[in-house]
Design a protein around this nucleic acid. Structure first.
Lengths: 200, 200
DNA sequence: TCACAACTGAGACTGAGTGTCAGCTCGATC
DNA sequence: GATCGAGCTGACACTCAGTCTCAGTTGTGA
């Protein structure tokens, strides 16, 4: 999946990037995103200001740099689903591969979600990254349905599926991780699967 | 809908705000959002830098200040739909009240959408504003369905409906406004209404 | 070993956004 | 119609994010 040449340079680069992100996360989660400057982070991490911006596209990216990979993971998982499966089910299965990520460190995932939710600039940046998820997933889904990538129907299906993921994640977050994420996901997708009368 | 005390002060304030936004839009659409500084705008508009930030929360807001009202308009239109209507139809009708906005100045609307799409900071800011649409609409939809605002199902329905709106708008934009927006909207919502086999 | 490519810190620079302050204007009240 | 307070204004200084350049260093491949 990743495009990693895996020379010594690139490996140390990835390691340093992770270390810096970790240091940054500790400051952000302790004091709040806006109350920590880039200078604070680089001082704590022992790198120069210039290098920080070589590792991350911006301050937000030090928190959200992992988000890009998730979209690719969903798209890849979708590509692996059997061709006969209906779109909603295939997307649901592709998406619930993410549960492993949350199960590995639920407390950290919750704290991350809260920080993003309460920090406008982080929220905006994350939403923009999710637009890229949208495009990646649409490119896999469209041929599956025999439609073009920019067909309205493809866009709606992808958008609705990502809304389902988002709704489940948000509910999971507000319940402090107590409700079952997989169950929430299937409840969310069921809304999209039911026939017309989602009536009152 | 609006909370306008309508004293002389507030009316001139609104008028000035509109004028500044118009001047800003001319610069942005001509040179691109990032190539125009706030100083450029205030020089052209004949106000001080400080005043600019009193009228707009940020540079992006000079383009997107109207976006907030749209969410309120959708929520209000939804509240006015008959109680017996199913959720998808009610949302579709609520949303297609926006068509009047686009019909009034299609060329301007297209140009605006293009600028937002090609400018990351504008896109991010717009997406963040749409999160607020989400909340406003959920608050109207939830009681209609006899559910709480933070119920997963409510969030999914609102998110999916907004995805439908977005897909239709985007398709309309890429077709240079040639395809019929209302038709695109109904195609988009039909995907959400059909029974399970949106199969391959 | 050598030459090149990629990385680094240092520091100057641009531009967004905030806070303060002193002066002006609107508009209500006497 | 003079006055007083609230709200607006421009000027200006300040912080911080992000870009760019430059010179020195280190990994990489021949």
């Amino acid at each position: 999946m990743s495009t990693t040449p895996s020379t010594l340079r690139s490996r140390t680069r990835e390691a340093v990037r992770l270390q810096v992100a970790e240091v940054a996360w500790e400051l952000f989660s302790a004091r709040g995103f806006d109350a920590v400057t880039v200078d604070d982070v680089v001082a704590a991490a022992g790198i120069s200001r210039a290098s920080f911006f070589r590792y991350f596209a911006g301050k937000e990216d030090a928190v959200l740099f992992a988000v890009d990979a998730i979209g690719a993971q969903i798209a890849q998982a979708l590509a692996a689903r059997p061709a006969g499966e209906d779109a909603w089910t295939a997307l649901q299965r592709a998406v619930d591969g993410l549960e492993a990520l949350y199960r590995r460190d639920p407390a950290g995932a919750l704290a991350r979600m809260r920080l993003v939710d309460e920090t406008p600039s982080l929220l905006a940046s994350q939403l923009e990254k999710q637009v890229r998820w949208h495009r990646m997933i649409a490119e896999v889904l469209a041929p599956r349905l025999g439609l073009t990538t920019d067909d309205v129907r493809v866009e709606v299906i992808v958008g609705a599926a990502l809304s389902a993921l988002d709704a489940a994640r948000r509910r999971w977050s507000t319940s402090n991780g107590e409700e079952d994420l997989m169950l929430l996901l299937s409840q969310a997708f069921d809304v999209l699967r039911v026939p017309a009368p989602a009536l009152r």
